[in-house]
Design a protein around this nucleic acid. Structure first.
Lengths: 292, 292
DNA sequence: CTCATATGTAAGCTCAGCTAACAGGTGTAA
DNA sequence: TTACACCTGTTAGCTGAGCTTACATATGAG
């Protein structure tokens, strides 16, 4: 292998990331460097090959035909390197199980229960990565993800953990402990919303409430909207599992609940990555859905 | 892609080379660094993964099972990167044609003729890499190789350029201009040999001469043995094409010649790498074999 | 045993990769 | 049209990852 004819691996990595994300800034964020480093690497590659690899299109950078050609191969090769690296980490019997999950699920469902797992399996280490981002189990090196949705995740094994239709909740001080009403009565309330998807808006609308006609405050994280709602500042809509603890303790009241919804939390695993520790964790998860 | 979980690409490259070559020294030579750099990179990877990747076996380093697993993937991935890089260099229409050939062929066959190519194709640049090493057309980025042998090169297109059985030559001052004799008469001569393969020794023996019983001086490069022979210091055995110029001019005399040999020089190309310039060069090569 | 060749380790050097700062470009909303 | 948010382009300077040097030890062959 004649490495003299291959440009810097760092430069190739920077280029691949920029081409994949069509943005130097995004590439810089993924690689934890400044955009200037990315720009310099791409420029260096263009000088090396005597070809243009990226071109500006408005506020994005698109690969040229030559650039696309190169980046396809690089994405494959670097993906292979990342996977090989991951596979070896897995072979270290002491590596912690890496779990990807949403911050709200981690906080309200998993954390209240995890003590039981630690008590019965003190030898198995867990690393929970709460993130609103959609992670790539393979490339990002996760053993398992818990995702909210309907169950269509190509290439992964999915097992339903818990139904979790939407639920609208408020503090008792806002609506009283024995609230009885319908959705359209809530039009005057102050809605504290976290990243509502189209799906939630459709459900609200089907039940007589148009969110665009209400007073809405956007929050970055579910934990923030929940705290504000607990304090009586307004109402919110969340997956049922997230609010169950509060409802049971009386901190929050369920105003409206989605019945027989097919959305829920699922356990996602890779077919090619199974370990005794992972199986033990999945077993434990299954047991949790039988204890409300 | 979570690059935080992937170790240094430089370290991975050093490891892959060491595992492939089963030697830190050889890896150091391929990468043009010291063995200490290789050793440190491998050590760093072992610390990162918490696994042993290489183990000492006498004066070699063999990959462990884990190491072999990783290096297989890396060899593929880095090979892909090298190829993608190469492909892009080729797309630069101005890149010179890279020709791999033995130093003696380059010197005695190609250089005396190349002026004709330059005269008729001044726009096509040529880069000739004379080397005794066996090159990998793909990984080392060559457009064409001229190799001496019988024509069995898997994965490459081979076309015979010229028959070139072995020939034993000497200066006229040593044996006279009109030498008539047989091989076994040459036992007393001083043989100046360049890396004789088993094949040459077998041929000499079939014709009555055991080289191990002669006075032999080993030379590193054919050019050196030929100069010594021209100066009358001894005799040598070379491929016919290499000595033809000298024989025709009378500088050297052919003592014994291999008849109807199936060894020769072949034009080797990659099926996946064809350019108009390359085709032009091959056409020119074909024409040269018709002009003695 | 000697010698050639190999790997192992630690300390110090240096330049490839990076940052900070400045500049200019693009898109959107008022 | 202006203001602003977000984007890429370029240059000069900094620094630690990658490397070398030096010393030590191990292995194999004659």
């Amino acid at each position: 292998m004649d490495w003299r004819r291959v440009p810097s691996l760092s430069a190739l990595r920077a280029f691949e990331t920029a081409a994949r994300l069509t943005s130097y800034s995004a590439a810089a964020r993924e690689l934890n460097v400044t955009h200037a480093a990315i720009a310099q690497h791409v420029r260096k590659l263009e000088d090396h090959f005597g070809l243009s690899l990226m071109q500006r299109e408005g506020q994005t950078m698109q690969p040229t035909a030559d650039g696309a050609r190169l980046s396809r191969s690089l994405t494959k090769a670097f993906g292979q390197i990342a996977e090989a690296s991951e596979d070896l980490i897995v072979r270290d019997a002491d590596h912690p199980l890496r779990i990807a999950t949403t911050p709200s699920f981690a906080e309200y469902w998993l954390m209240p229960r995890i003590g039981g797992f630690w008590a019965s399996h003190p030898d198995i280490r867990i690393e929970i990565a709460p993130s609103g981002d959609l992670v790539d189990l393979r490339a990002d090196g996760f053993d398992l993800a818990i995702r909210y949705g309907r169950g269509n995740w190509p290439g992964l094994n999915a097992e339903r953990l818990e139904s979790a239709g939407h639920i609208v909740v408020a503090a008792p001080s806002v609506v009283g402990k024995d609230y009885v009403g319908c959705m359209s009565d809530l039009g005057d309330q102050h809605w504290l919303i976290t990243g509502t998807s189209t799906e939630e808006r459709v459900w609200l609308k089907e039940n007589g409430l148009d969110l665009s006609k209400c007073r809405v405050t956007q929050m970055d994280v579910t934990a923030l909207s929940l705290q504000a709602v607990r304090a009586g500042h307004g109402i919110t809509i969340v997956p049922r599992a997230v609010a169950m603890g509060d409802i049971e303790s009386g901190t929050l009241v369920a105003l409206c609940e989605e019945i027989d919804s097919d959305v829920g939390y699922h356990i996602l695993t890779r077919p090619d990555r199974v370990s005794p520790q992972l199986k033990t964790f999945i077993s434990w998860l299954r047991k949790q859905r039988k204890t409300p």
